[in-house]
Design a protein around this nucleic acid. Sequence first.
DNA 1: TATTGTTATACTCTATAACTATA
DNA 2: TATAGTTATAGAGTATAACAATA
Lengths: 164, 164
Amino acid sequence: MSRTESSTGTADRMSVSLPDLPAPTSVNLGLLSSSLAFHVRKAQLALQRRGLRNISAMHVGPAEFGALVLCEQNPGMAQFQIAAALDIDKASVVAIIDRLEELGWLLRRRSNHDRRRYGLYLTAEGARQAQVLRTQAEEAESFAHDIFSPDELNQLLGLLARLG
Amino acid sequence: MSRTESSTGTADRMSVSLPDLPAPTSVNLGLLSSSLAFHVRKAQLALQRRGLRNISAMHVGPAEFGALVLCEQNPGMAQFQIAAALDIDKASVVAIIDRLEELGWLLRRRSNHDRRRYGLYLTAEGARQAQVLRTQAEEAESFAHDIFSPDELNQLLGLLARLG
DNA sequence: TATTGTTATACTCTATAACTATA
DNA sequence: TATAGTTATAGAGTATAACAATA
């Protein structure tokens, strides 16, 4: 990589301006300002920074939280169903369930109806932690209620749901 | 990891139901259905699947595309400004600019106004590629125009912008 | 002292492919 | 043959910390 000054001899490769412009003080986003992907990505970063990441010390991220809530609402759920609900591969679910099982928050029980599957069940401790995490998640997202009216929040959720 | 059947002896740890439930046929999302983070994440995945990822063969991802568009709109821009605009660390910008420079799409030119900085400028080839990529990005997001009315799309963009 | 760019390093999240056991 | 779960592996995308040059 030639990261030299190369102040001459490359003029023919320049598209816009050779002169040593002062760096712009305010940045023009161009096409990005109307890009859905750009805004969705920034929104996700903003949500992560608000505390949704590393939600309760432990190594419990959004995926673990999602799996826990799903198993709470749907006792006996199978791993491939977690994968579908969270939009990730079934192979990626294994490590998530492993972690929750190691924490003692969740049990795998081989299904008798279909012995290829596990049924997933929360333990009592898992149910307790789910409650704690749910509260934390709600607090992490509570700033949205300051930014948006209830109507606007519903609008946003509805519009996003149509994208997925 | 004991992934045995453990059909007995763990009843005290179960929070919900011991019986071997058939896996639920339809999944209840619980709290997730009203979670902003959950919907934003699914929306991002949907956008990526629509072709925004690996946008033009080469190793040109969303970050490279963003940097290219920014430099096109703001000739002489510095790397730390790219970092701020894309919401990533300045250290992460280095590799992105390296790649664009290797492709011959972009030039670093040490600024004379502040010799700590580089001014970033598109090459003629970079400007050509920016046009190609812009078209591809617009096509990748065009499905949004099928899903949303122009008003709805503006609403969504506006609401997302308020989150970031 | 603070800022800009750089390097080295490591971490999170996820996908892919190949395997097993069951269906 | 197809499906559910597993393993091993690899990749993308980023952050952090420490550093040199410059302000």
